[in-house]
């Protein structure tokens, strides 16, 4: 038995629902830190940034699951739905912290979404993810049928790209870190491209 087979057998013993519980721990922990002074003197900004960064990291894990399975054989496919939903939770919490705690003024929120390109892009990413989160259940899958459901869930790709772009756009000055996130996302999306088959002339 290969190492990967053994790994897959081990992974199969972990029920996917446990991810929901593990997934919310950092969220609760970060809010606790922010409320009790553990995130420094600008807790709102720090919380906002940490949630956004975690969301982006999880998004990268979600995107890596398919290529890991196809190319290496590591099977995390059973966790994809739970991970996707937890990712959405962090994206949503990130947006809520910005909306309620950071800006908090309705006219300013609307102006920001329309006028600040990095916020427009971030919001677009969240909007694209919303139907994905809402249809991440068996009932939706049955109702829509697997073909249409899969087509809908391709929205993950533009959503991920826009999420990473959002980070690049908000960096002041030239900074490596956001560019590396964008690079990894683009790489993971690139792995999904299938080169068009050469047409065979009879």
């Amino acid at each position: 038995m290969t190492l990967i087979q053994r790994l897959n057998i081990g992974l199969r013993r972990i029920p996917p629902w446990t991810l929901y519980f593990v997934g919310v721990i950092p969220l609760i922990w970060l809010f606790w830190l922010a409320a009790t002074g553990g995130l420094g003197f600008e807790p709102i900004k720090e919380l906002e940034h940490r949630l956004g960064e975690l969301a982006l990291q999880m998004l990268i894990v979600v995107l890596a699951i398919r290529p890991l399975y196809d190319r290496i054989g590591v099977n995390l496919m059973a966790f994809r739905r739970a991970l996707g939903l937890v990712t959405f939770l962090y994206v949503f919490a990130h947006m809520l912290v910005w909306l309620v705690l950071d800006v908090g003024i309705l006219s300013e929120i609307w102006a920001d979404i329309l006028k600040r390109p990095y916020i427009t892009v971030g919001m677009a990413s969240l909007v694209l993810m919303t139907p994905l989160a809402m249809s991440s259940n068996n009932l939706s899958l049955r109702k829509m049928g697997p073909k249409r459901w899969r087509l809908l869930h391709r929205l993950t790709y533009p959503a991920a790209f826009l999420g990473a772009l959002h980070y690049v756009m908000l960096a002041r000055g030239f900074q490596w870190e956001p560019l590396m996130y964008l690079g990894v996302v683009v790489l993971l999306l690139g792995l999904r491209l299938r080169l068009p088959r050469r047409s065979v002339v009879a």
Binding site: A35, F41, E42, P43, I44, L101, E108, A111, K115
Partner: peptide
């Protein structure tokens, strides 16, 4: 004067906490 990244209408005092208003 609107900055392309940030509205400059409001500001937050550093150290004013998680539930502070701008």
């Amino acid at each position: 004067r609107d900055h392309p990244r940030w509205s400059q209408r409001f500001e937050r005092r550093v150290g004013s906490g998680l539930f502070s208003k701008q």
